[in-house]
Nucleic acid binder design. Structure first.
Lengths: 223, 223
DNA sequence: ATTTAGTGACAAGATGTGTTGTCACTTTAT
DNA sequence: ATAAAGTGACAACACATCTTGTCACTAAAT
């Protein structure tokens, strides 16, 4: 441990506020600075091209504080990734909620929110869809888990509105994974092509794939 | 250059056969040994976790010969990747050709060949679908280009058999990217789940997505 | 005013990797 | 038999990064 060598009898007076904020808050602030810096650095140059020093430079903090909150680059990346996933999840829920329970409308609204987020922030796009796969086997599993959550979300949406018999669909979770994969790949191509064609065309095109499945669930195309 | 300091007058006598094979053949053999080693190492541990020394150990050759044929890890990876793409392409063409021009049958045969290859060799799967995205921006472009080739292949297959009016489909190439993405993601989940459920169920499920699009092209589902 | 914790810049050792070079040994051709 | 090219194991250097530690300075509490 650090501190002085004396016991913890003075613990109630140990950590002082600084510049008006408590110690815990300052630590949290610095941690957030690193998370923000990670989004920028990882999003712009990729995980493996970024060093701790660069992250510190971007965060305007020094290595000492980096290791205060993170055990290493991977630890920071996990925080950045989780933040991005949460951001996406919030968006999706906010966008789709008003459309419930019309499956087609929900899908369209969710996809539009997704593409909108990617266009707003290419860094988030890169971290969500690519970098996460390359950090480590552990992060790869985390990404699979996150994808699974989205797939389950999709699955629940369809299950709650589906009227067909269950045996019609071999494995809805796998289909959901497929739809997510289709969306992700379309998005990657869209970004690689400099956000061309327009978002609404990309949205319509992606919806063709979703419609094909939604129809199989016993819904009218416009539902 | 290496060799002795004398001129190239003795070039005809310079390179001797060794152990029965010519110099060029030996170089090519060694190169192939490294490509094979790259498939194993990159496929098992991922590009960024592999060192030149490990590659040499796997290839049972030394660094000296590594730099004889490759400028560095990325150069080798490119060779490994290109080999994997070629292997996949051959499989797809061989599998789909007898089914032409029935679109549905071609898609099913191609997908079955694809899933079969991935099950045979998880290393190829990883290199084709994941590692290639993480090596460098240049390799990423190469992967995009390869995906585009497959998408164009798909596009041509549909175009040659489609009877609908062209304006029905906003962007067939984008749709093809989507279908490929769906297939890739389904495959990744399949592999992550230890090749479960069975290949035939995965195939049926993936075909649901393809059928949805094929139907929109004016074909009967069984075509 | 003095003391103590917090802060920021930087140094330095430890570590791992890429890359080139050396040397003894083997095989081939004369 | 001898010389020259091929081979394989390994050493050594350069280089970048991680990680911990030091030190002077600032802000806050007594």
């Amino acid at each position: 441990m650090s501190k002085t060598t004396s016991g913890k009898a003075t613990s109630s007076r140990r950590k002082r506020p600084y510049r008006g904020v408590s110690a815990n808050e300052r630590v949290a602030e610095r941690r957030q600075q690193f998370v923000d810096a990670g989004l920028v650095c990882f999003g712009d140059h990729g995980y493996h091209a970024v060093t701790v020093k660069q992250l510190c430079q971007q965060a305007k903090l020094t290595e000492r504080y980096f290791y205060e909150s993170f055990s290493g680059r991977e630890d920071l990346f996990a925080a950045v990734y989780d933040g991005a996933v949460e951001r996406l999840q919030d968006r999706l829920l906010t966008a789709t909620a008003p459309c419930a329970p019309k499956l087609g409308n929900m899908a369209r609204a969710g996809l539009d929110a997704f593409f909108g987020l990617l266009r707003e922030d290419a860094r988030v796009a890169r971290i969500l869809m690519m970098e996460v796969l390359t950090v480590s086997p552990g992060m790869e599993r985390r990404a699979q888990a996150a994808t699974l959550r989205f797939a389950t979300l999709l699955e629940q949406m369809t299950a709650s509105t589906s009227t067909g018999s269950p045996t019609d669909i071999p494995d809805m979770n796998l289909i959901a994974s497929g739809l997510i994969g289709a969306t992700v790949h379309i998005a990657m191509r869209w970004i690689a092509d400099g956000y061309h064609p327009t978002q609404s065309i990309v949205l319509d095109t992606t919806m063709l794939l979703f419609d094909g499945i939604i129809q199989k669930l016993g819904h009218a195309p416009n539902n």
